[in-house]
Amino acid sequence: MGGGANKPELIVNGKRLDGRGFDELRPIKIVAGGLKNAAGSAYLEWGNNKVLAAVYGPKEALPKHTQDPEKAVIKCRYAMAPFSSLEEHNRSGPNRRAIEISKVTKEVFENVIMLEDFPGSEIDIYIEVLQSDGGTRAAGITCASVALAMSGIPMTDLPYAVSVGKANGHLILDLNKSEDNFSDADMPIAIGPRTGDILLLQMDGDLSKEEVGRGLTMAKKAGEIVSKLQMDALRAPYEKILERYKV
């Protein structure tokens, strides 16, 4: 967001700088599993983003005062590695931005995890961004969804997230870093595909009512692709096993 005087053109000849169309996702690769100690884990590459997610629990919530006698509590950490961006070395651990993202990410999963099944316990969701190129919160949520499903924790939906933005008057899907830096608006969205519920919605910049509406529709359409990739990733390890026992 922002830019100022030396704002580059983000759309040239009806194409984005990386050659994508307005409603085109970057290439996404999801691998379920990978971290043995975790109850569930996943690795995701989304364009140049590289994200790792792991889930621990359900286990007894500690310290004790964090327990909820009626349901499980989720503890979520989204953090960017100090070496994750092209700019200078970051301080490690969550900054204010990361704390906010951790909070809204936690709220996404509070909606879909059947927390009432595990009173008194905690479920830990860790999202580590190893390499960032715009849209890391969407990548993190999409990845953590797969890790959660992998862990077998009962959920009512498998959320995905994607961001929509605006550049040179056009709505564009899935902003990369340079688009994010110079766009006129950015709107990350997380959706539960089964219900169509909006589980995360943030936005800054300038968008008309109509543009927000169109952006949401755009996100849902792209979500069909992301959802399929998530499910394929979850199926893959089992297909390998099937393969092995094929007669």
Binding site: I198, L201, Q202, D204, D206, S208, V212
Partner: peptide
């Protein structure tokens, strides 16, 4: 006066697209 400048959804509950469109209005 003219456009939406920022949004933030919070807490566990979800909103539908129709909700959001109505609330912007």
């Amino acid at each position: 006066e003219k456009v939406v400048r920022a949004m933030q959804k919070g807490k566990r509950g979800a909103f539908s697209q129709q909700d959001i469109e109505h609330l912007m209005e």
